[in-house]
Design a protein around this nucleic acid. Structure first.
Lengths: 354, 354
DNA sequence: AGTTAGCACTCCGCCCGTGAGAGTGCTAAC
DNA sequence: GTTAGCACTCTCACGGGCGGAGTGCTAACT
């Protein structure tokens, strides 16, 4: 008998690894616990089902597989997926056909930078049949490009702040007294001259000087303070938006047919804080990161996995693209797709920031 | 016996109306078919269950109620909800407590106009326990406020177009030859002088003249053409974004416990075209509009109702706020909330555009 | 005429036992 | 170390029986 109990954390022998792999791939495609007979039928492993049973029992002892109940087939555990993913991840690359298709799609929006991350999410969703996620690249520190100041009524004006990376913030400024548009134009000109091209920190310094200078009009002081705060907020926020596409794909997975589990997934996605913390953790990683099910703290994540990668790091900005799907997910394809798309996004963003 | 078959489309007598109303309210709160006994127990109608049964049979003949099966209680039909909604809608207004709470929340973001519609969706979701929807107000025709033109590399520049209502579009411009930032500044200045403050149509005219003028630099011609196209696209689009909040509330409803129906709902929400066509239809309506279940063409809408209202019309802009929930929905509250929030949004937008 | 008590009837949902099927773990032979 | 064989376990699907909820009808009452 092949069974060795209390196995230490040694390497798995190749046959065990092949069987683990076969179990996972079969389970991923059928969503049913897989039995020993089914494995030899479909994978022709060159051994009998009895041998496979012994090996599977070993894998269960080692924590890579489980049993829903005594007389059911095996199902991978999170640890099993983890081992699998780590063994395949380095060599994966997307099929040339799919690369070509993706590159073609991105070619269509090459000059519409606002569309890039939407397309990234959509593409990933389409290729992997799971949900695609993407955030716009957010620079570590923003620079002011331009402000506009326009009267709306006698009581309010609009302040539009255009930042160097193309993001834009808008605020209303309450006016204590009526101003002519001409007066607003003067303030606008002054502030553009004084503040444009500066980072949040530099703006803060300059704002202090402006406030101390008796020649600065009161409105200018107030508005420059607003600008400073807006830029500080932008720098402090870790992600602004997470775009997702193809959530319907996830809803189709049989493991989410009872809506309770599905609800948890959506709750995660609406939780900005959690995604923000993920991005922070990812920021140091170089390659695609795979987060499998309950390995991750929040209980909501129990039944889902994330495959994530950053892009734009070489330009000082940081964005994320990824896949969200059931733990029982086609990891090779997901990893390949995310790796390829993040590379593509890198190219695009570099071309923009250089 | 009270039964009169083949009832013409006459008014319902008051007692029938009261019973229809009671059935709906009971069904809305319990999600179970309601029986005659349950009605007299909980509503004390002053008649016996037998009488109620007779009336309910009449209401069923008239098409306002149905039977899931012979020995089950009654369930409202879409026509029943419709009659109910029409009988209550005119008089509904939100409870003062909730008004106060909502107004307070809006007070917090009074000067952050980008937040308004997000807050509207969130507030509606919170008060009604269904999903809240909101779109930003989109003017019938946009005006150019300002453009920025910035070099990214020797091969591309960024064009940022700020429109008068505060929305912003960004595009990359491929450069056939390297330009200095100084040259770009010249073009930027020229175009701002020539085009700022103009509508899409006016811009189009001016662009033609500029193109004909031999003194206009080639880059200026190209970029002005881009600006024209961008503005034309903005005017042509019917809605840009639909923000939704509280989708989790909808997922909790027992009618969506099988995920198939839920999928349909989400499919609707992702369908921009459908929502756009709704907005167009709504544009003429004055008050809150209620769309009940399968009254509406697409089969996906079968189990959901929409309560929608426009805002901002007096300023020439048009936005929508609303509720999406199961057909079995607390209509009075939904109508009251949507009516109140749309009024509030009106105030805010008017203050901005005047 | 409208209202009501009484009652037979219908149909769903639930419980329970049964049997088929799938897959395991163990033993003994190769 | 591998494999055939076999007993065992557990799930799932099916079907019958039963209680309960609610109806529709009839006949009596106001």
């Amino acid at each position: 008998m092949a069974r060795r109990k209390n196995r230490p954390a040694t390497q798995l022998d190749p046959r065990s690894q092949a069987i683990l792999r076969a179990v996972i791939e079969e389970y991923v495609s059928t969503a049913q616990p897989v039995g020993s007979q089914a494995l030899v039928d479909r994978f022709g492993l060159g051994v009998s089902s009895a041998t496979v049973r012994n090996v599977m029992a070993d894998l269960e002892d080692a924590g890579y597989l489980t049993h829903p109940h005594t007389s059911a087939g095996r199902v991978p555990t999170d640890a099993g997926y983890r081992l699998y993913v780590e063994s395949i991840a380095p060599g994966i690359s997307l099929a040339p056909v799919e690369r070509l298709m993706i590159r073609h799609q991105f070619g269509q929006v090459e000059f519409a930078s606002e569309q890039w991350f939407r397309l990234a999410a959509a593409t990933i969703a389409g290729v992997t049949h799971a949900a695609g996620l993407a955030t716009p690249a957010k620079p570590r520190s923003c620079r002011l490009r331009h402000i506009d100041l326009v009267a709306n009524s006698t009581r309010t004006a609009s302040l539009v702040v255009v930042l160097a990376e193309g993001s834009v913030k808008q605020e209303l400024i309450p006016l204590d007294q009526p101003y002519e548009q001409g007066q607003l134009d003067d303030v606008e000109r002054l502030l553009n001259v004084e503040l444009a091209g500066r980072s949040a920190r530099q703006v803060a310094n300059r704002v202090e000087q402006l406030a101390a200078d008796p020649r600065t009009p009161a409105l200018g002081v107030r508005i420059s303070g607003r600008i400073e705060r807006i830029m500080r907020d932008v720098d402090a926020a870790s992600i602004e938006d997470v775009f997702s596409d193809g959530l319907l794909n996830v809803m189709e997975a049989p493991e989410f047919s009872q809506s309770e589990k599905l609800r948890r997934v959506f709750a995660v996605l609406q939780n900005r804080d959690y995604l923000g913390s993920l991005v922070r953790r990812l920021a140091e990683a170089d390659d695609v990161q795979v987060l499998i099910g309950a390995e991750n703290e929040p209980a909501e994540m129990q039944d889902v996995s994330l495959v994530l990668a950053t892009y734009g790091r070489s330009t000082g900005a940081l964005g994320v693209v990824g896949v969200l799907g059931p733990t029982r997910m086609a990891y090779p394809q997901a990893i390949g797709t995310v790796r390829y798309v993040s590379g593509l996004m890198n190219e695009l963003v570099e071309q923009l920031h250089r």
